[in-house]
Amino acid sequence: MENSKVQEIIEKQVLTVAKVVEEKLDDQISALDHLDSDDLEALRERRLQQMKKMAEKRSRWISLGHGDYSDIPVEKDFFSIVKASDRVVCHFYRDNWPCKVMDKHLSILAKQHIETRFVKMHAEKSPFLAEKLKITVLPTLVLVKNAKVDDYVVGFDELGGTDEFSTEELEERLAKVQVIFFEAESSLSKSGAQTRGVRQSTHSDSSDSD
């Protein structure tokens, strides 16, 4: 008896939601039906302008190196890069397994999120920046917005604590602070990293000069 009452309540709720959705669709269809040729032309023109602006943005982003995951060999180039692009993800790394895992995911995201510049810097070859930005654990991602450091992703702690995190998990972490946007280009399919136990390395372990 109790189950039948619950079922009845659920059915009523489903019907209510369906009715609301149907009414919204009817309103949208009605609005389209009442558009005259001038309204349609205005919509078309606005859409063309939006597409033109997006094409211009894409062209500018590509000219700045967006869409590629590149190494910055000289420290001073970091400053010109963060000034030129509104959103930058910079990976401070050394030549070890954890950093190679991060490289794999970032190379995918760089192509998926053309609105953001993805770069990397060898921490041992960038002592000034490593000290200035207080880089102690590798890998570390420095997330820059409007030429200012907005956040860090340090090691794998926020990604499950191992190297088995997916590209999508890293994508969600970066999107959380809006250094990338989910609206950009195509959606990202899950890409699992190779399974292998790992310990995060510290920068102090890798070099005595820092």
Rank of each mutant, 00 (worst) to 15 (best):
K176M: 13
V137M: 04
G161P: 09
T167N: 07
E158Y: 03
T162G: 07
T162M: 02
S126N: 09
V153F: 01
E169N: 13
H122K: 13
E131K: 14
D150V: 15
H113P: 08
G155I: 05
F156E: 00
T162R: 03
I135Q: 01
D157H: 15
I114R: 04
F118N: 05
K132M: 11
V153Q: 06
H113F: 10
Q112S: 12
E168L: 15
E172A: 12
K120N: 02
N146S: 05
A123V: 02
F156W: 04
V149S: 03
T136D: 14
V144R: 00
Q112T: 12
T116S: 03
E168C: 13
G155P: 08
E171Q: 15
T162Y: 02
I135F: 07
F181Y: 12
T162V: 07
N146H: 10
V149T: 12
H113M: 03
K148V: 12
N146W: 02
P139D: 10
F118T: 03
D163S: 15
E158L: 12
E124D: 01
S166T: 15
P127M: 08
N146I: 04
V149E: 07
L129V: 00
V119Y: 06
D151P: 02
V179D: 10
V153K: 07
K176Q: 15
Y152W: 04
M121Q: 08
T116F: 02
K176H: 14
F181P: 02
K176P: 00
L174D: 08
V144I: 13
E172Y: 09
I135R: 01
F128N: 03
I180R: 00
P127Y: 11
K134R: 13
L170S: 00
G155V: 09
R173I: 03
R173A: 08
L138Y: 03
L141F: 08
F118E: 08
L174V: 10
D163C: 13
V144W: 05
E164Y: 14
F181L: 10
Q112L: 10
V154N: 08
A130I: 06
V144F: 05
L159M: 00
T162P: 00
K176A: 14
E124A: 10
E171L: 15
P139I: 09
A130T: 12
V179H: 00
L174C: 06
L129Q: 05
L170M: 11
L143C: 03
L133R: 04
R173Y: 02
D151H: 08
Q112W: 02
L174W: 09
R173E: 09
T140K: 12
E164P: 01
K120H: 04
K134F: 08
V149Q: 06
D163W: 06
A147C: 11
A123T: 04
V177K: 12
E169S: 15
F128W: 10
S126W: 08
V149C: 05
E164Q: 14
N146G: 04
T136R: 15
E168Q: 14
I180A: 11
D150K: 15
K120Y: 07
D150I: 14
K120I: 01
K148M: 11
T136N: 14
E164C: 13
E172M: 10
E131N: 12
L129N: 00
V137R: 01
A175Y: 05
I180Q: 10
A175S: 09
F118P: 02
K134Y: 09
I114Q: 10
